[in-house]
């Protein structure tokens, strides 16, 4: 709970998502910022999982917990912003589809690490890299 509160506050400051979107462009910028924040967390997880053998389990757990909370925080924040138009709504849905996949992927990895270790590091790295690329493209198109 505490973590989520802290992550939420950080995201509110980082992405500036706490205010409503005034128009399409404003909403689009918020979407791009959210994509950037999620992309950053996803890429950090990719680097960590890629170096799995070199990291200790407690450390990996802390790192993944932080990333999972960050992604979830961004999703909650961005999901809470009212899209000002139909076009914006579609844009938002397109982004949330990707970021929610990212949230699930990171949370899944966290569960694996809590239990033992990442089962298929190479597969996880591929998936995260794909998500990272998509988010990056989204951010460049709309930022």
């Amino acid at each position: 709970m505490r973590r989520r509160w802290a992550a939420g506050l950080a995201v509110a400051l980082v992405a500036g998502c706490s205010s409503p979107a005034w128009n399409d462009r404003d909403y689009e910028l918020k979407a791009a910022e959210s994509a950037e924040a999620v992309g950053s967390a996803v890429e950090a997880v990719r680097l960590a999982v890629g170096g799995d053998g070199r990291l200790t389990r407690p450390y990996l757990k802390v790192l993944l917990t932080g990333a999972a909370e960050q992604v979830q925080g961004v999703n909650d924040q961005f999901g809470g912003v009212q899209p000002p138009s139909e076009r914006a709504r579609r844009l938002g849905e397109r982004l949330l589809e990707v970021t929610e996949r990212a949230e699930k992927a990171v949370a899944g990895l966290l569960t694996e690490v809590r239990r033992d270790r990442v089962a298929d590091p190479a597969g996880a790295v591929r998936e995260l890299a794909g998500l990272g690329r998509t988010l990056r493209r989204f951010q460049e198109e709309h930022g």
Binding site: V14, S40, E43, L47, A48, G51, L63, G66
Partner: peptide, 18 residues
């Protein structure tokens, strides 16, 4: 190169671990 913006102590030590 990975477009990660460091925002926690955990991320900050990652390069050393790698």
């Amino acid at each position: 190169p990975a477009h990660v913006q460091v925002d926690s102590l955990g991320q900050m030590v990652l390069p050393v671990a790698l």
